[in-house]
Amino acid sequence: MKIVKMTDLRVFIMSITVTLAFEVEGQSLSSNQKRANFTIADSLYALGNYTQAINNYVQSNEQNASLQIARSYSALGRFDKAIAQYEDIVVKNPEAQVAGFELGKLYLKTNAYEEGRKLFSKLIAENDENPEYHFYLGKIFSELEQPASSLNSYKRAIEKDSTHLRSLFQLGKYFVTKREKETALTYLNQGLTVYPDDVSLINLQALAYYNNDEYQKALPLFERLVELGEEKEFIYEKLAYCYFKNWEFEKAKSAYKTVIHLNDENSEAYFNLGQVFLKDRQIDSAQYYIQESIAVQKPFLAEEYVALAGIARNKDNIKSAFEYYKLAHQEDPDDAFIYYNVCTVADKLYEDPKTKLQFYEKFVGRFAKRDDYMGQMVAKRISQLKQEIHFLAN
C-alpha cells in the first residue's frame, strides 16, 4: 500500500481549489457578459438600432430577451419573424399575457383576423376585466364583418371601463353611420364628459346633427373643431353649409372660400359658393363661381349648366338659357326635366311654331312613356302648336 505524503496531499488540494476558482470566475465572467449584452441591447433598442439590438439580445440569457427580439422585429417591419418569435414565447409560456397581447395586435395589423379572434378570446377567458382585450376583439370582429359581435365587444369594453374613449368612439361612429342619432349621441356624450376637447368625438357629434338636418346644433360643433385647430377641407365644407342653412351668408362665403383655398379643384365648393351668392341675390358673383365650378371639373356638368340656365332666365337672357339647357341635356340625355326645359325655353326663343313643335315631339319620342305633369303639358302644347300651324296654313 502506497503511503501519501502530507506535502503531496496539500499540493493536490491546492490544485483542485485553484481549478474550481478559475471555473467559477469563468462562469461569473460569462454571466456578467450576457447581462452586459442585454443592457447594450436595450440601449440600442431605445435608439432605434433594432438589428444590432437583436444581435445583442441573442447573446443574452435574460428572461425578457425573447420578448425584446420580437418587439425589435416588429419595429423593423419584419412581421413574419416577429409573429414567429411571439408565438414561440406564447407556446413555451401560455401565461405570458404581455406577449399574447402584443401578438394579438400584430395579428390585427397583418390581417390575420381569425388567429387574432382566437387569441383575444383566450386572453379574455384568462382576464375578462381588461377593456383593451374587448376593444381589440371588437376591431377584429369588425374586420371579419360581424358587426353585432363587434358592437358587443365595444360595449363590454366600456362596461369594464366607462372612460374607454376608443370604444365609445367606435360605437358612436357606427350609430352615426347608421343615422341613429340618439344612440350615437349617448355614447359620444359619455366620451365627451371624460374628454371635452376630443376632436374625433366632437366631429362625430357634429355629423350626428348634420346628417339629421339639425344645422343649428351642428354649427357650433364645427366651429369648435376649427377653434381646436382642425383646419380640414371637409370640416369647412360642412361649416359653410351650416352657415348657409342658417342664413348667415357672409360667413358661408368665407368658409367656402377657405375650402377653395385648401383645395382649388373642389368643384362642389365653387358651385355651393355660387348658390350662396344666388340666394343672396348677387347674380353676377353666382354666375362667376358656378362657371368656375365647371372650369375645375371634367364630366358631369349637368347640374351646373342647369343652374347657369336658371340664372340666365332670371336675367331674361333666353338665348343663353337655351344654350346652357342644351349643354345640360348633352351631359345627361336621360333627364326628362332638363329636356323639358330645353323645350320651354325654345318655345320662348323661336317664333316659328314648326320649330317649336320639333322640340316637343322629340320630347315625346325620347320620353314617350311619361304620364306625369311634364308629359301632360307637352301633349297639351303639341296640340296647341298643331292648331296654330293649321290656322297659319289656311
Score class of each variant (00 low, 15 high):
Ser293Ala: 08
Ser293Glu: 04
Ser293Lys: 05
Ile294Trp: 09
Ile294Met: 06
Ile294Lys: 07
Ala295Gln: 15
Val296Asn: 12
Val296Leu: 08
Gln297Cys: 09
Gln297His: 09
Gln297Gly: 09
Lys298Phe: 13
Lys298Trp: 11
Lys298Ile: 15
Pro299Val: 15
Phe300Arg: 15
Phe300Gln: 15
Leu301Ser: 11
Leu301Asn: 13
Ala302Asn: 14
Glu304Arg: 10
Glu304Trp: 05
Tyr305Phe: 12
Tyr305Ala: 07
Tyr305Lys: 07
Val306Ser: 12
Ala307Ser: 14
Ala307Met: 14
Ala307Arg: 11
Ala307Trp: 12
Ala307Leu: 12
Ala307Tyr: 12
Leu308Pro: 00
Leu308Tyr: 01
Ala309Ser: 10
Gly310Pro: 04
Gly310Trp: 07
Ile311Gln: 14
Ile311Phe: 14
Ala312His: 10
Ala312Leu: 11
Ala312Asn: 10
Asn314Cys: 11
Lys315Gly: 07
Asp316Pro: 01
Asn317Ser: 10
Asn317Met: 09
Asn317Lys: 11
Ile318Leu: 08
Ile318Ser: 02
Ile318Ala: 02
Lys319Thr: 10
Lys319Glu: 10
Lys319His: 12
Ser320Thr: 04
Ser320Gly: 01
Ser320Glu: 03
Ala321Val: 08
Ala321Trp: 04
Ala321Pro: 03
Phe322Tyr: 08
Phe322Ala: 01
Glu323Gln: 14
Tyr324His: 05
Tyr324Glu: 03
Tyr325Gln: 09
Lys326Cys: 04
Leu327Ile: 14
Leu327Asp: 14
Ala328Leu: 09
His329Gln: 13
Gln330Glu: 14
Gln330Val: 15
Glu331Tyr: 13
Asp332Thr: 12
Pro333Phe: 12
Pro333Asp: 10
Asp334Met: 11
Asp335Asn: 15
Asp335Thr: 08
Ala336Pro: 06
Phe337Leu: 14
Phe337Tyr: 15
Ile338Met: 03
Ile338Asp: 03
Ile338Val: 09
Ile338Leu: 05
Ile338Arg: 04
Tyr339Ile: 01
Tyr339Ser: 01
Asn341Gln: 05
Asn341Ala: 02
Val342Leu: 08
Cys343Ser: 10
Thr344Ala: 06
Val345Ala: 08
Ala346Gln: 04
Asp347Gln: 07
Asp347Val: 03
Lys348Gln: 08
Lys348Ser: 08
Lys348Met: 05
Tyr350Trp: 10
Tyr350Ile: 04
Glu351His: 06
Glu351Leu: 05
Glu351Met: 07
Asp352Ala: 09
Asp352Phe: 08
Pro353Ser: 08
Lys354His: 13
Lys354Val: 11
Lys354Phe: 11
Thr355His: 09
Thr355Asp: 09
Lys356Gly: 00
Leu357Val: 12
Leu357Asn: 10
Gln358Pro: 04
Gln358Leu: 03
Phe359Asn: 01
Phe359Met: 07
Phe359Glu: 03
Phe359Lys: 05
Tyr360Val: 07
Tyr360Gly: 03
Glu361Val: 01
Glu361Met: 08
Glu361Lys: 10
Glu361Ile: 00
Glu361Pro: 06
Lys362Gln: 02
Lys362Asp: 02
Lys362Glu: 00
Phe363Ile: 02
Phe363Arg: 00
Gly365Asn: 03
Arg366Asn: 07
Arg366Glu: 04
Arg366Pro: 01
Phe367His: 03
Ala368His: 00
Ala368Pro: 01
Ala368Thr: 03
Lys369Thr: 12
Lys369His: 12
Lys369Trp: 06
Arg370Cys: 00
Asp371Ala: 04
Asp371Tyr: 00
Asp371Arg: 02
Asp372Gln: 01
Asp372Trp: 00
Asp372Phe: 00
Asp372Met: 03
Tyr373Ala: 14
Tyr373Gly: 13
Gly375Phe: 02
Gly375Arg: 06
